[in-house]
């Protein structure tokens, strides 16, 4: 089992988008659901022999997730972000790990 964690922090706290690569089959539903085009489907470079394809956060978004994910982040009141609800396998989580003021 392999878990990828992409973090971002803004004024409200520290957030993570995580992917369980064992559950991800690279279907791309999350990619189509993301309004900011943050995600993509790429070959699983963590298992080069028989990894198949998996979801990944695009390189160009990795240092600006706090802006890219701001409209849907889990504390906006809109419930689970679209990337999470779109995944038919429950492979993605997107959560606030510590609110501002707690240890990051």
């Amino acid at each position: 089992m392999m878990k990828a964690n992409y973090g971002y922090a803004d004024g409200s706290g520290q957030y993570y988008i995580t992917l369980d690569t064992d559950k991800c089959d690279g279907c791309g539903d999350c990619v189509r659901a993301c309004p900011a085009s943050v995600l993509e489907i790429v070959p699983n470079e963590f298992d080069i022999i028989d990894g198949g394809d998996i979801m990944s956060v695009r390189e160009e978004h990795r240092k600006k997730l706090k802006y890219s994910c701001a409209p849907c982040k889990p504390t906006t009141g809109g419930g689970e972000p679209p990337c999470v609800t779109a995944c038919p396998h429950g492979a993605i989580t997107h959560f606030l790990s510590s609110a501002k003021g707690q240890v990051m």
């Binding site: 392999m2 990828a4 973090g7 922090a9 990795r62």
Partner: peptide
């Protein structure tokens, strides 16, 4: 320009990694 924390098994295969948007 960035840091990554990586957990791996005895073969050096990644089990868990974490990066953030700090510059």
């Amino acid at each position: 320009q960035d840091c990554k924390a990586i957990r791996c098994d005895e073969r050096g295969k990644v089990q868990n990694f974490l990066m953030n948007d700090k510059c």
